Simulated scan of single mutants.
Amino acid sequence: MAGSTSERLNAAADALDRAAADADRAAGRFSEARLESTPWGISAPAREIAARWEAALAARDIDARMLGDATSDLAGQLRMAARGHHHRPTIATALLS
């Protein structure tokens, strides 16, 4: 594998940040779909279908936001690990001191 461990951890964190941004965009789309959906008629069954559809979109919106937040948190943890790994002295450095 090319690159240091710190570089690989930072690259993985960047990929997770892109995934978190994708999840946030998906959440926005679910939210927009909820605002744009309208009942398909005035019958009770049509209102029930519309209510279920809106509830499903709301749940997906929440799921996507939670996924984005968790993914972003993981990216932050990887960056902290990369900084810790980068600053940790190697055995060779310790022996030369």
Rank of each mutant, 00 (worst) to 15 (best):
R47Y: 09
S37A: 12
E36W: 05
S31P: 04
D63R: 06
A33K: 00
D73S: 13
P45N: 02
R34F: 00
R52E: 09
P89H: 11
L74R: 09
G84L: 07
S6K: 06
T5I: 07
R29C: 01
S43Y: 04
A81Y: 00
G76L: 06
R60S: 09
A64E: 08
A56V: 12
D73P: 02
D61L: 03
A19S: 12
A33W: 01
G68C: 00
A12L: 08
F30V: 05
S6M: 09
P39V: 02
I91S: 15
R52I: 01
L16M: 05
A82N: 03
L74I: 06
D17T: 07
A27V: 00
N10F: 12
D69F: 04
D14C: 05
S4K: 02
A51I: 08
S31Q: 10
E48Q: 13
L95N: 13
A19G: 10
L74G: 00
G68M: 07
L95F: 14
E36A: 00
A92F: 10
A82D: 07
E36T: 04
D17K: 07
A59K: 15
A50W: 02
A2L: 11
R18K: 15
W40V: 03
A15R: 12
E7R: 05
S37Q: 12
L74F: 13
S37C: 12
L9P: 07
D17F: 03
G41S: 03
S72E: 10
A51R: 15
S31E: 11
R47M: 08
L9E: 06
A12T: 02
S97Q: 13
G28F: 04
E36Q: 10
A92N: 10
D73I: 08
A19M: 08
A15G: 10
R29I: 02
A55H: 08
I42P: 08
H87M: 11
R52T: 05
A13H: 04
D61I: 03
D61Y: 02
T5G: 05
L95V: 12
R88Y: 13
A44G: 13
A55N: 06
P89M: 05
L78D: 03
A50P: 02
D73N: 12
A70K: 13
L78Q: 04
W53S: 05
L67H: 06
T93H: 14
R83G: 09
L67V: 07
A15K: 12
S43N: 03
G68E: 06
S43M: 02
I62T: 13
S72A: 10
A21E: 13
A58I: 01
A81C: 06
E7M: 07
A12I: 05
A94T: 15
A92M: 08
L57R: 09
D14G: 10
H86L: 14
H87P: 03
S72M: 06
R65S: 03
M80S: 15
L74T: 09
L74E: 05
L96P: 09
G68W: 00
L78Y: 09
A64W: 04
A20N: 09
S43A: 05
I42R: 15
E48D: 14
A59D: 15
A81V: 06
A81L: 08
A59Y: 14
E48H: 12
S37M: 11
R18Y: 08
A44D: 14
R29G: 04
I91H: 14
G28H: 01
A26W: 01
L35G: 15
T93D: 15
D24C: 00
